[in-house]
Structure formats: C-alpha cells, structure tokens
Nucleic acid binder design. Structure first.
Length: 277
DNA sequence: CCGGTCACCTGAGTGC
DNA sequence: TGCACTCAGGTGACCG
C-alpha cells in the first residue's frame, strides 16, 4: 500500500479504535518484522497505554504513555486489522499475520493484528530517547501537506536529479510514493524526466498545488486500494480517480494521445509524452 | 554526490 | 492445466 493517504487513513482509523487502550500482550510470529531489538520489543510495549495514533511521512506512530512509541512502516503489503485474541502462537490468526497486540480497556478486550503478505514491513518499539534518536537518524523531509511554495521551490530546485526521483526521496519530502507522484506530475503537466534544477518558481508552485490537491482528495476517499490495501474500516476508492497510474496503453484523459510507460529510478512510470513537459 | 541494480518476499497475471 | 516469467504501492545496500 501505503503512501501518505493510505498511512493517514490507517492512522485515523487506528486512532478512533485503539486510543486509550492498554497493550496487555504482544505476540510476534515472524521475527524479522521487528526491526528494533526483538528482546526488548514486548517489554517496551506491555503495560503502555496508547495515547494516540498519527502519521509521520509513510510511518504510522502509536504514541505511548511512557513518551515512547510504536512505529510501523507498512512498505508494500503491510496492514492492520482488528479481531479476537488468538490465545497463543498456535491460535486462530488472520492470514499472513506477523504480530498481534492484545488491547484492553475498561470494558473491552480486542486484538490488533499486523498482517503482511510480502513481509517487507517493519515494526519498532521505542523509549522516549530511542524515538527521538531514531527520527533524527531517519531524517525525513517535511510533509507535503504543510509545505509553502517558496520552501518547496528551494528544496526541489536544489536537487540535481530527475523530478520524479526527487519527489520519491523521503529525505526531501516525506510521504509521496509511485502512485501519487505519477498522478501529481500528470496534473501539473510536468515530465517525470525533467531535471529538478530546471523548474521555475511558477512550475514548482503549481506542482505543490497539484500534489496537495491530489493528496487531499485521496485522503477524503480513504486512499487507493490497489492489490490488497485497506484501512480498518474498509478499502479506499481513490483508485477510481487515477488518471495515469496503471493506465499505460490507454489514452490521455486530457489530450487523447497514448499514455507511455517508462522507468525512473527503477520504478514503473506512466505519463503523457504530449502533455507533460 | 549520483544513478543504476539488486535484494528483500509473496502472489497475481500473462504467454506459451 | 501447468510452468516460466514479469511485475507490484517501498526502502536500503552495494557498485561503478
């Protein structure tokens, strides 16, 4: 899944379902899914109340009463689902579950499952100090929804790389992935192959406007469900509004010419050679 | 510093 | 039906 709109949707869904719940038990059924120290993973979490759930870039962050946090990156196929506690590692687990968290409230008892078909996703548990250090080391760029045009221009035009590559770099801007970059570049009529240094302030300003418009609409529609992504409360529907992503071979919705498929930085890239300059 | 390629995994789709 | 092959929303390591 997950780019910014899908992570935002998942974080909002989680916040309404698990905030104020206490983590009472933790089971891990695929050790590599835990990217922080495995031996301290459960001890760091058990007994903690989840204060709230939010998002940083594509990361989902569960703030804990200790001041630390549980961070989750869903990569390609990670997903949270709610259900009943399986009891132990031999219990009834949803397909592809890699970890489970028993959550208890005053009168409730539910389980948060982390599922991940391809096992690329990662979970990390942090103390307050560990969290601060990790986020610093991660070095994520600013959130595109909070950027001002002048800052966006200086960030982007200072990079000597192709425009799409720059937008995908989480250290430059945090949250955009392949779908939303292709959609935003099409909306802004800019070629993914353009060198970022060649963009004028007018072009970067328009690009930022389009990025923010595309992301806002995608969040409103609970993200794009391609393959298996869905939030806690069901799939998104922004895929019905994709204009270029996954549509190579079809005609450009603006000019009618054929959409082309190329590669930028190893990523499949769909664009209109006629409209995007 | 930069770009390109591969590795990490599983599953779905395609073509023979 | 079966099999081989390609591709997929993301990063991170490695190489030239």
């Amino acid at each position: 899944m997950p780019e910014l709109p899908e992570a935002e949707t998942m974080a909002r869904d989680l916040n309404s379902r698990v905030a104020d719940q206490t983590i009472s038990e933790v089971l891990v059924s695929f050790d590599k899914i835990v990217a922080s120290d495995l031996s301290t993973f459960a001890p760091t979490l058990i007994g903690q109340k989840i204060e709230r759930v939010g998002r940083i870039g594509k990361w989902i962050k569960f703030d804990l009463s200790s001041g630390g946090a549980l961070l989750a990156h869903l990569k390609m196929t990670g997903q949270f689902v709610m259900g009943d506690w399986p009891g132990d590692l031999s219990g009834e687990w949803p397909a592809h579950t890699r970890a489970a968290f028993l959550l208890t409230g005053e009168n409730s008892r539910q389980t948060l499952f982390y599922r991940d078909i391809r096992k690329f996703g990662r979970l990390r548990a942090f103390s307050p100090d560990g969290l601060r250090d990790f986020l610093k080391e991660l070095g994520l760029g600013p959130d595109p929804l909070k950027l001002e045009p002048a800052d966006f221009h200086s960030i982007v035009s200072g990079k000597k790389a192709r425009l799409k590559q720059v937008l995908l770099d989480q250290g430059v801007i945090a949250g955009l992935g392949n779908i939303y970059v292709d959609e935003s570049l099409f909306a802004a009529a800019l070629s993914p192959f353009r060198l970022a240094t060649t963009l004028s302030p007018e072009e970067t300003s328009n690009l930022l406007t389009q990025i923010q418009r595309v992301l806002a609409k995608a969040i409103e529609l609970r993200g794009s469900t391609v393959e298996n992504y869905q939030g806690l409360e069901g799939p998104g529907s922004f895929q019905d509004h994709h204009l270029v992503y996954g549509k190579h071979g079809q005609n450009c919705p603006k000019c009618g010419e054929g959409l082309a498929k190329g590669r930028v930085g190893g990523r499949g890239t769909t664009y209109c050679p006629a409209c995007q300059k």
